[in-house]
């Protein structure tokens, strides 16, 4: 986790690294709030800087928002790595189990039997969630998540208002979260805790 080569800054047409310096404190505060652990927040902030140094960013319209999104995604990747390592009854400490963060775009590795079991659980739970969604929420979720359309575009395709899309997506996310909680792939949902 040590800096690679502080002096080797690639040209960054978006000025993201300058923005990083400008908003460093807010980013750190956000990361600490988001992951609840100051040490981890420092590590993730460093990971963010490394990513910027590698010039991973594409064209960016709002640099500050982009940095926060990157930071947010790093927390997610880290959480995924942790949950993999710590998952209950997960004797599988696969080759990538300790990797941190887990690259999202790597090709499927040869899965261990335990990983396949988890993947199968995920597939079953997600299918159940998708199949039991109301039609509108299901379609909105598909357009938004799988066709990667923005909410305004989903609204246009479905012929409904933007707030209608938000309602559909909220229904979909709430449902997804509930089913994944029931399947113990996420902590129990608050709706279950309420009962």
């Amino acid at each position: 986790m040590s800096p690679q080569c502080e002096g080797r800054h690639s040209a960054n047409p978006n000025g993201l690294k300058a923005l990083f310096d400008l908003h460093r404190r807010e980013l750190l505060r956000f990361l600490a709030a988001r992951c609840g652990a100051p040490d981890l927040a420092e590590d993730l902030l460093h990971d963010l800087w490394l990513k910027l140094d590698r010039g991973d960013a594409g064209p960016v319209s709002n640099g500050r928002a982009y940095l926060f999104r990157m930071a947010n995604n790093l927390v997610l990747d880290a959480a995924r790595g942790r949950s993999r390592a710590m998952r209950r009854d997960k004797e599988w400490l696969s080759a990538e189990g300790a990797a941190f963060p887990v690259p999202e775009d790597r090709p499927d590795p040869a899965c261990s039997a335990d990983e396949l079991v988890v993947l199968k659980q995920e597939v079953q739970a997600l299918r159940r969630a998708i199949e039991t969604l109301p039609q509108g929420a299901r379609r909105a979720l598909w357009l938004y998540r799988m066709e990667e359309r923005g909410q305004a575009d989903v609204a246009r395709v479905m012929g409904i208002s933007r707030s209608g899309v938000e309602k559909h997506l909220t229904v979909a996310m709430r449902h997804l979260r509930k089913i994944l909680g029931e399947a113990e792939l996420l902590p129990p949902s608050p709706e279950e805790q309420d009962q």
Partner: peptide, 15 residues
Amino acid sequence: YDAVARGDAMLKRTG
């Protein structure tokens, strides 16, 4: 928030 974001990421990744 973490649960929501992770669930959504799971959907995207697995989908």
